[in-house]
């Protein structure tokens, strides 16, 4: 740790660096163990396959940094995809389908945020209710899998910029665009900084005259939008809507944020970390599928171990910072 500090790496970026090192290590391990692992195809597939999770995790990261949680995102993804499918079946023009689909999660997020702030209700419960509502709404639309009939989705799904032997697909592009926009939002806008401020101490943020109410409502709105966008992207994989899709995805999104160095208590975290957290989960999947001996169930096991490791790492980091403060006082 001392050595790192000498190298000009501050203590607070330690969890992020640890995450990055694990990512590189996994990547190198994959590259050494399996032929063709170091290829553009594997890399771009990693982006494509994890776009839905990554985009959702971005919204989740903002919510967690603000000191909250959003359990509704998995259900919003599934219901958004279902809504797209049902609307295409009903012949709604695609120019309307897309905005309506994106509005669904956004409006739900706004309502949840408003309820959380106006009634000072616990986010865990309110977004749990949002999750049930959204799942229920999805089932109301249809209990079975509904195919998407517009050609646009099949074409969008097949689209990809050729880079080497890989394809930079729309989901991959969307993920990168969302990440860049979110990094900008988190670092260079007042809204972004206010999210961190609220997560650091909501009471202080109030006393410092920051617009806490508005920012918190907008954070849930943003998370809802991200989930809906992810749900829309999801249709490119499945070309259908299904009410049981995305179950437990909110937990994966939380895992992405936490592995990426976001503290569940709020105030600390980065979007870049969340991207790496998402890609680590993706790499574990890729390595296990390359291996072929392990069944897919091992994915969960490894992800769980990874999560535990990072939680412990963060504990050490937090204890370290607290110790430093004491020593100075």
């Amino acid at each position: 740790m001392k050595l790192l500090e000498k190298l000009g790496i501050s203590r607070r970026s330690m969890p992020l660096i640890a995450t990055f090192v694990v990512f590189i290590a996994l990547y190198v391990y994959g590259g050494i163990s399996y032929r063709n692992f170091f290829s553009a195809r594997v890399f771009f597939n990693l982006l494509t396959d994890n776009a839905v999770l990554g985009i959702t995790a971005v919204g989740m990261t903002f919510v967690i940094i603000s000191g909250g949680i959003d359990l509704s995102v998995g259900a919003v993804i599934s219901t958004t995809a279902m809504a797209v499918a049902v609307m295409t079946q009903a012949g709604v023009p695609n120019g309307l389908v897309i905005p309506i689909a994106l509005l669904y999660g956004t409006v739900l997020g706004f309502l949840m945020g408003f309820i959380i702030e106006y009634f000072k209700a616990p986010p865990f419960i309110v977004t749990l209710a949002g999750m049930f509502f959204s799942r229920g709404f999805g089932y109301v639309l249809s209990l079975s899998s509904v195919p998407i009939v517009y050609e646009f989705y099949a074409k969008a799904s097949a689209f990809g910029l050729k880079i080497g032997n890989g394809r930079f697909t729309i989901p991959g592009i969307a993920l990168i665009v969302v990440i860049i926009a979110a990094i900008f939002l988190s670092r260079s806008t007042k809204f972004g900084r206010n999210i961190y401020a609220i997560g650091g101490s909501e009471q202080s943020a109030v006393f410092m005259g920051l617009p806490v109410f508005r920012v918190k409502v907008l954070v849930y709105t943003l998370s809802g939008f991200c989930a809906s966008l992810a749900g829309f992207i999801y249709t490119f994989y499945t070309l259908s809507g299904y009410g049981l899709a995305g179950i437990g995805l909110e937990m994966d999104a939380i895992a992405s944020a936490v592995i990426g160095g976001t503290l569940m208590t709020g105030g600390y975290g980065t979007i870049f970390g969340t991207l790496i957290g998402t890609l680590i989960q993706g790499l574990i999947k890729t390595i296990i599928s390359f291996n072929g001996q392990f069944s897919v169930y091992w994915i969960r096991l490894f992800t769980g171990g990874m999560l535990l490791l990072f939680i412990l790492l963060q504990k050490a980091f937090v204890a370290g910072t607290a110790g430093m403060k004491k020593a100075e006082g």
Partner: peptide, 29 residues
Amino acid sequence: VYQEVNLLPNLSVAENLIIGRQPMKRGCI
């Protein structure tokens, strides 16, 4: 300035001084 220190330990000293009225340059803080 309220009785107990009411600032944000998770942000930098500079940001604590300026947050809420950050100068903007080409749309960025």
